[in-house]
Nucleic acid binder design. Structure first.
Ligand code: FES
Ligand code: FES
Lengths: 161, 161
DNA sequence: CTAATAGTTGACTAAAATAGTCGGTTATTG
DNA sequence: CAATAACCGACTATTTTAGTCAACTATTAG
């Protein structure tokens, strides 16, 4: 089983998408800046998220990504699965064959653990996360921090006008 | 968070130790053969298990390892922690600082997940595992498969006698 | 005593996964 | 048409895993 920055980035990015929805598509450049994730890396992750139909894309200027389902209908396990291919704690992929074809001594333990984790994560939706006070306050801070860039773009727009 | 063969091996080996306790110390060579784990790798893992006082060692012929506590008092989380240094799903080690010093959007989620996993694994002791029917049947199979070596040693003992 | 056993230690290594980067292409819109 | 932003494939540095190897130390059976 592996849960590294890859899965964490994916969930964070999806949550950012959920938070900033409603005002049209969100570009990866925005997510990159707000969440401090490399743009090129985000592109890789979103390719997988799109293949798993968790997001849809809009190309061209003003484009970006949008959630492909209701926030209530996307849970954390789905997001991690999409980029990580499975949250599996067994060494055999549930086939029961990690000791040269036979089942090992601890196979069932890892199966139990896997479903424990999966149950927990699949219970939590993006909508749930958005309601949490800790998430809201962090999101608020991030918007404040990067509003300067937003203002800059407004100013430069004025200047060129 | 990482749960790979390292942690799985450690738990498997500790369970093997528990199963074959009572007849004196168990050598790593025996565990290696029964569980199909490299002897040299086991040595590395048991160095850590010993440093964490989960096992004690007996040197010399007839030596090996023994559990350093009651089977009821050793749980799976302790074993994994000993070799893996923490079952932590956060990217910041619970310090809340993975976005250049500040807390990230999903920090609390990973904290919750970490304690979920830890609670689950720390609830399961070696004694619990030994009572499980699936563990008992796999152990029985392994003893059968490797009884030939055991018989061989009996025979050679008879011959030399 | 001595030879065999089995733990102890440290350094080293091959292979895999992670966490990216880079350069270019394609579709869209103002 | 030019800017934007998604799309795609290949490439790379770093880290971790999973292991090997060689040498050393303590213990005990004979
Ligand atoms: S983990 Fe499934 S057989 Fe070992
Ligand atoms: S996981 Fe703790 S701050 Fe990001």
């Amino acid at each position: 089983m592996r849960l590294t920055t890859k899965g964490r980035y994916a969930v964070t990015a999806m949550l950012d998408l959920a938070i900033h929805a409603g005002k049209g598509p969100v570009s990866l450049a925005d997510i990159s800046e707000r969440q401090g994730i490399s743009l090129s890396y985000l592109e890789q992750l979103f390719a997988k998220l799109r293949r798993n139909e968790l997001v849809r894309s809009v190309r061209g200027p003003g484009g970006g990504y949008q959630l492909n389902r209701e926030q209530r209908d996307i849970n954390v396990a789905q997001v991690i699965d999409a980029v990580n291919e499975s949250v599996d704690a067994t060494g055999c992929g549930h086939t029961g064959s990690c000791q040269d074809g036979s089942i090992c001594l601890t196979h069932h333990l890892w199966c139990d653990l896997s479903s424990q984790i999966h149950d927990f994560l699949s219970q939590i939706t993006l909508a749930d996360l958005m309601e949490r006070s800790d998430v809201r306050s962090v999101a608020k801070r991030q918007d404040r921090e990067h509003s300067s860039a937003f203002e800059d773009s407004l100013i430069s727009a004025k200047v060129t006008a």
